[in-house]
Design a binder for these strands. Structure first.
Lengths: 134, 134
DNA sequence: ATCGGATTGCAATGCAATTGCAGCGCGCCT
DNA sequence: AGGCGCGCTGCAATTGCATTGCAATCCGAT
């Protein structure tokens, strides 16, 4: 099955829980918070979901965004993603509907860092109104 | 006095506390957290410092960064700053010394947002090693 | 069948941000 | 000069999210 393959491809041992979480995430159109994810399940322990996301993140299956709402949001990575700075896309947080979107093809040019600064990761968050709310 | 003028220019009524905070901030070379600021004073209430920063921020005397450490950092705005997206500069968080720098002249081009998305603010955080730590 | 490491669930903790309330100071009005 | 009101300050307490410890459970390998 496709979901299981995705886990294996990232060296994550597939468990029932993880498959369910991955399934949910793949249905999500926006980046979701831990609470959002919990709400998508009838009964699932929040900490387990938390750790599942952490595992996914460690293996680069999902990436996280701090969109300024105080709670971290998570979204699936693209298949080719290695979460290197050049892989990073921007995120857009709508201050009206409170959704956070992955702007997959909004990449940020990385040039002219000050001398001797070494870049490992980057995060770009835009805020405003999304297409539905503007 | 110069500090007092700065407050007045931003329509902030100058108080002893605020002058002290502004003085401290102007000495800081990096963006600082509430805890950092508190540590710079012998005895000052954290909540007062918190509210002072909030006031400064509302009046665009300081801007804030969420650098991913979990605690918000604050730094003085440039004189001309209105905190509009085009005023925004990037921030660099060194994962080794844990300092967060304002990259005053690292601006981010804002082009090609998806249709009907309206941009109000933006935040760009780079992570890696600073010049001292690399 | 058994063993051991990984996974899950539940309880509890840590920490930063935020709010409520009381006291205080300072300017303003009479 | 006295009194009022508003904003500022300090202290106590609460909220909410992230994170950890521990016990129970599952699953694959021997």
């Amino acid at each position: 099955m496709k979901l299981e393959e995705a886990l294996l491809a990232r060296n994550i041992t597939p468990t029932a829980m993880r498959l369910l979480v991955l399934d949910e995430l793949s249905k999500m159109k926006t980046a979701v918070s831990l609470n959002d994810l919990e709400a998508a399940f009838d009964r699932a322990d929040k900490v387990t979901l938390y750790r599942t996301l952490k595992t996914f993140q460690k293996h680069k299956l999902v990436h996280s965004v701090e969109d300024g709402t105080g709670s971290v949001k998570y979204a699936l990575c693209q298949e080719s993603c290695e979460c290197r700075p050049e892989d990073v896309h921007a995120h857009f947080h709508c201050t009206r509907c409170n959704e956070t979107f992955c702007l997959q093809d909004y990449h940020v040019p990385i040039d002219s860092l000050p001398r001797k600064f070494v870049l490992h990761e980057m995060s770009v968050v835009l805020r405003g109104l999304c297409d539905h709310c503007s």
